[in-house]
Design a protein around this nucleic acid. Sequence first.
DNA 1: ACGTTGACCTGTGTGC
DNA 2: TGCACACAGGTCAACG
Length: 277
Amino acid sequence: MPELPEVETIRRGLVEEVVGRRITGAHLLAPWILKAPAPEDFLSAIAGRTVERVDRAAKYLLVHLSGGWTWVIHLMLEGQLLYVEPQGPTKPDTMLVVELDNGMQLRLRDVTGYARIQLLRTDTVREALKLDAFGPEPIDPDFTFELFQSRLERRKGMVKPLLLNQQVLAGLGNIYVDEALYRARIHPARKVNSLDEAERRRLYEAVVHVLEEGIKNRGTSARGGRYRDLWGKKGEHQAHLQVFRREGQPCPDCDGVVEKITLGGRSTFYCPYCQTL
DNA sequence: ACGTTGACCTGTGTGC
DNA sequence: TGCACACAGGTCAACG
């Protein structure tokens, strides 16, 4: 599910609803999603803490708590973080329930079971998550074309797998990479070192554009709308997708038909006429 | 260095 | 309607 726009939307929801709240208790229903520390240490360490700030780094949510602790959440493919009234029945895919001092709950759900959390000392987060090895955040004001260009230097592989690599750029995933490559009219299997200056500039603009549009539209709830924001609402960006999961449908810009291929093990959607090798 | 594959997990969308 | 069967917004490790 969540790529940069979805995680950012959830982060903003947390800033609105949860920052300033105190955690009164927690129940860990699926202990194996917790990387560290031991479950009993996690539960006792977060109880009584106040949520002071919520950051995002690539697709990680960083929930900074009082006392120098940071609760790290990665939603992986299909995780949901929901702000709910406590009376709702606990679905079997609920992995963690965190109780807040206003009587509300945060619930982490994931049908696939891939979501992961951990609790770290705040001053060790950067090192523990290897954040210094991550690429720049494409929606930062200082993400210039020159910076983008420098990330592509001396790279030889196909452009789509490169853009999915969080060490190159932070936050892109399968949806927004396909959409950005379509917008830039670049075939996903093009070799990066074959892209000329104009193509690189188009790709830079497209990456920033699709991510910003995704945030404006509060994320993409594709296929049954598995992605939800903090309040359980679907995003709106699925209505704006040009190629993603649109195989067999007409290209928005030519007489061609959107095709589906597999690249790097991921489903990939593109227009074979607009995006040629 | 690059590209592919499988593992992680389990529900659900899709097509027959 | 029922049933089998890919398939999923991500990451990581192992292999050729």
